[in-house]
Design a protein around this nucleic acid. Structure first.
Length: 582
RNA sequence: GCCAGCGUAGCUCAGUGGUAGAGCAGCGGUUUCGUAAACCGCGGGUCAAGGGUUCGAAUCCCCUCGCUGGCUCCA
């Protein structure tokens, strides 16, 4: 027998948990049926770190119900009932699930000839492909977590079911560890940190619209400044465009037909205007403002313009889904031949920035032609192939998402998870064949003919707001020094050290370091504690010794005490940390 | 938009039909201190908004707004 490797062990554990959780969902459905015999069962799979089951019941589940269900589940688990697999034929399946319309729907969609399997434990039976653990006794420690609504088949036009989420682990310790991780993640929640660190606020007077406080604005502007630096190297030109356009523009761009319910409209002097949800039509106008030669291409217009989108109530979320934001948006106008190189250059720039921020779990998706689309198949073939080639050329693993592309072209999206593992789209690069058509964009080719350029929409960080939200959670508020809103706090021990503290402040400010002096008549311990909570990278303590010797006692937010350092050395230390962007 | 939950002081929260509370923060004072919370005192509320039930509502009901967790959506 070969020795079992860690990898095998992980795989076994994953498979055990999957079977256990799937089994737990059956046990939960059993408990729900005991309490509500008229409940209709939908589906109950295992998930990344738990399971759920969807039910249709007229009685809305309450938190108390959850406790009762959990108690019944524990009872079933304690009884150690075996899971029994059976194969049945279609007719029998119909009979068996005659009271379960959702199950009937699933049965009818199974390809003919495929075996129909059911799993039993005790008196409960469910249509199910399996696999399960051998007996309910093997389920381990489980806990129900929340109640949510979910559409049958994920279809908004069909009934809303009640979903119960839960999780199960092989041991009580593993379960508790998981719950602790969740709590830990909640401490990193950017909404909580944003308030505590005075980065931004929200006010119901402008729902889903952040107000960036001075410290938040520092980070916001530094991100933009960073992107500007990249643009300089990668050949982008920044432009500034209007905020509000007559709806004639949105009719021409197609937004009026496809996006109007997400737009803020204003009526002035009997004319209708739309606040821009995107920059692209404005850039198309600039492109079209003069004759273009193939020699001018590619043209790369970058725009940090503020966008407004009326996101449906219920979908907004802290900084990560807002109604007003700006993106590191740019549009590249190029010849079809240049598309590959442009997309590749963009991905290179994007990966450079993601490396800087040390995102460990970037997921890449290539979205292909949707059913409703513009352009002929040959064009889509070329466009999709071109994006796929680039991904292979740069060696990025990616998921294919058929049907998920924009109506105007295929796209590559970059997703990064928040503290709780929810994925958010940050970067995107989209090919667009529709807008150049609608705006009649042209360039004169080498042979003198008029040609249609391709438009590439692309954003690297995506919405700065969303990016900041992810960044806050990623670092738990302890930003790298170059981006920390306050890089150093000078902490005088007693009032008599204030004068020297001010001198230190002056020296740091001369270097452009973002420094504050905590000059309150408070104890040093309190000042250190508060600087720690604010995650300030450098705490510079000054007392009698330091004032006398022109030194600083340097403390890091890790808790490490570097002891007294000459002023010049401390300055160099901070400067290095900033310059390295680490 | 849909399902469910929540909304009490700046923040975190207690208060389930009978006079609105605590801690932190804030303000005033005392303390001048060596690496994560000194001490004493004082203010602070349209209990989200509106309507209803009741002798009486933070508490029960209706409606609106906002937030949270999901679902759908993310052009």
């Amino acid at each position: 027998m070969p020795e079992m490797t860690t990898k095998d062990h992980d795989k076994d554990l994953t498979s055990l948990r999957e079977r256990m959780r799937h089994s737990a969902s059956h046990v939960m459905a059993d408990a729900v049926l005991q309490m509500f015999p008229e409940a209709k069962l939908a589906i109950g799979p295992s998930t990344e770190d738990g399971f759920y089951y969807d039910f249709q019941v007229s009685h809305p589940f309450t938190p108390e119900d959850l406790e009762t269900i959990e108690a019944r589940m524990r009872n079933t688990i304690a009884r150690g009932l075996p899971f029994l697999r059976e194969e049945i034929d279609r007719e029998e399946a119909h009979r068996m699930f005659s009271q379960q319309p959702f199950k009937l729907e699933i049965i009818d969609e199974l390809p003919p000839g495929e075996a129909i399997t059911i799993y039993r434990h005790g008196d409960f039976v469910d249509l199910c492909r399996g696999p399960h653990v051998d007996s309910t006794g093997q389920i381990g420690a489980c806990k129900l977590l929340s109640i949510a609504g979910a559409y049958w088949r994920g279809d908004e036009s069909r009934s809303m079911l009640q979903r119960i989420y839960g999780t199960a682990f092989e041991s009580q310790e593993a379960l508790e560890e998981h719950l602790k991780r969740l709590e830990e993640a909640q401490r990193r929640d950017h909404r909580k940190l944003g308030r505590e660190m005075e980065l931004f606020i929200f006010d119901p007077i402008a729902p889903a619209s952040p107000f960036f406080l001075p410290k938040g604005a520092v980070i916001y502007n530094l991100l933009i400044e960073y992107v500007r630096g990249l643009y300089q190297r990668y050949g982008y030109q920044e432009v500034i465009t209007p905020q509000v356009y007559s709806t004639e523009l949105w009719k021409r761009s197609g937004h009026y037909d496809n996006y109007i319910e997400n737009m803020f409209l204003v009526h002035i002097e009997e004319r209708e205007y739309g606040v821009k949800p995107m920059n692209c039509p404005g850039h198309a106008l600039m492109y079209a403002s003069r004759m273009r030669s193939y020699r001018d291409l590619p043209i790369r217009y970058a725009d940090f313009g503020r966008l407004h989108r009326y996101e449906r109530s219920g979908v907004t979320h802290g900084l990560t889904r807002v109604r007003t934001f700006s993106q590191d948006d740019a549009h590249i106008f190029c010849t079809p031949d240049q598309v590959h190189q442009e997309v590749e250059n963009f991905i290179e720039m994007l990966l450079e920035s993601y490396r800087l921020f040390q995102f460990p779990d970037v997921r890449v998706a290539l979205s292909l032609r949707p059913e409703k689309r513009v352009g002929d198949d040959a064009m889509w073939d070329r466009a999709e192939a071109s994006l796929e080639e680039v991904l292979r050329a740069v060696g990025l693993p990616f998921d294919l998402k058929p049907g998920e592309g924009a109506f105007y072209g295929p796209k590559i999206d970059f997703f990064v998870p928040d503290a709780l593992g929810r994925e958010w789209q940050l970067g995107t690069v989209q090919l667009d064949f529709a807008l150049p058509e609608r705006f009649d964009l042209e360039y004169i080719a080498e042979d003198g003919s008029q040609q249609r350029p391709v438009m590439v929409h692309r954003a690297m960080l995506g919405a700065i707001e969303r990016f900041m939200g992810i960044l806050i959670e990623h670092y738990g508020g302890a930003f790298p020094v170059w981006i920390a809103p306050v890089q150093a706090v000078v902490i005088p021990i007693a009032d008599r050290h204030l004068e020297y503290a001010r001198l230190v402040e002056k020296r740091l400010k001369e270097r452009g370091i973002r420094v504050e002096v905590d000059g309150r008549s408070e104890r040093m311990n309190l000042k250190i504690r508060q600087a720690q909570l604010q995650k300030v990278p450098f705490m510079l303590v000054v007392g009698d010794k330091e004032a006398a010797s022109e030194t600083l006692a340097v403390r890091l937010r890790s808790g490490q005490d570097l002891g007294p350092r000459p002023l010049s050395e401390a300055l160099a230390l901070i400067q290095d940390a900033i310059d390295s962007r680490a």
